[in-house]
Write a protein that binds this DNA or RNA. Sequence first.
DNA 1: TAGATTGTTAATCGATTAACAATC
DNA 2: TAGATTGTTAATCGATTAACAATC
Lengths: 213, 213
Amino acid sequence: MSVVPIKKAPEPTIRRLPDYYHYLKWMQSNGREVVSCTHIARDLDLDPTQVRKDLAVTGIRGKPKVGYLVTPLIESIENFLGWNNLTDAFLVGAGSLGTALLGYQGFKQYGLNIVAAFDKDKRKIGKKIHGKEVLPLDKLPGLAERMHILIGVISVPAESAQAAADVMVEGGIRAIWNFAPVSLDLPEDMVVQNENLASSLAVLSRQLAEAVK
Amino acid sequence: MSVVPIKKAPEPTIRRLPDYYHYLKWMQSNGREVVSCTHIARDLDLDPTQVRKDLAVTGIRGKPKVGYLVTPLIESIENFLGWNNLTDAFLVGAGSLGTALLGYQGFKQYGLNIVAAFDKDKRKIGKKIHGKEVLPLDKLPGLAERMHILIGVISVPAESAQAAADVMVEGGIRAIWNFAPVSLDLPEDMVVQNENLASSLAVLSRQLAEAVK
DNA sequence: TAGATTGTTAATCGATTAACAATC
DNA sequence: TAGATTGTTAATCGATTAACAATC
């Protein structure tokens, strides 16, 4: 009755927020202190009203005639996305994609800190990749539980993805970032993002086919 | 007047087609010859009407009471997505992500064949990564033109992405698959797919925040 | 034949875009 | 003050879902 429900932000809005964030960071590094939606919209090729609505979900208020203060706006987005504090994560699959993900320093900026890798291949276990240890997969549930890990990254081949997901669920992991090209069968309350390269490539191919038609 | 325009398929539909494709391939390998939308919808957790509409864009017709013939349906999707013949592509940025992409055998299945990598780092030039040569970036325009390369993959850091894109445009490349976390400034007629890891991570963080709330 | 399934038209839903009053 | 910009309500647009006749 009295609790105002947090308005659920539309997914397209959430997907655009990082773009605003990077843009604003750049503005900030240029010494810019204030910026208007009109300006952002022009530079990012979006509708000004959309920009206003998108930014509004983070709770920020602009000043009519002036615009938005850059620094508080950045903080508002960081806070909304949870990018102001690091969340530890486990990665399963220390192959070439896994290695690339382990080496990507940029995730820290997005609040994600991959602390360890897991693999079932004995030849990989014990090695260090980009400073992170590769552990046997069956150690994951125990460690995840003890370390209160909430996020798991899957970078194994399609065939092994479901097994990797099952182990994560067993360890109490709540959100999975899945780079394997399969849809996972998971409990209702699990959060999943499929990084579907096949889908992106499908869209690219079709658009190219139409463009050169 | 007389030419029936090709109905432009909705992007969400195109993004789902690879999922149907993988599912059908699996059905096929299980010896299944016929499958109904109802069945597909249940397994893939979609609406049956949506499945029918999605499949219809590829031009296939089902048989009332029976369903769809698996093999022709697979071919129809392959054909629609252009996955039945390989398109050669160039990759710029032979860092860890680039290396992972060069090593991923799955792209061939999706009609993409990365034939060479380019980098501006002299220490990488001349090496072979997963059997593909790393060439100096300034050779790209000439080679792209001569080899009629239409697709470019960008896996460089954010700062270098625009420069990589410019070189691709110069070489007559028409479609860019961009893994750098920046939006590129490109001519109108260029096709772009941004593989935006920051966006996916933003959605994951928010959903997790709501789930554990 | 009866019933399951397709193909298509209509209804719903949600996101984007337009219009405009409020404001510094 | 005048005018640019915000915040919000209404209109539009497109995708999803529901309803149902046609069909094998």
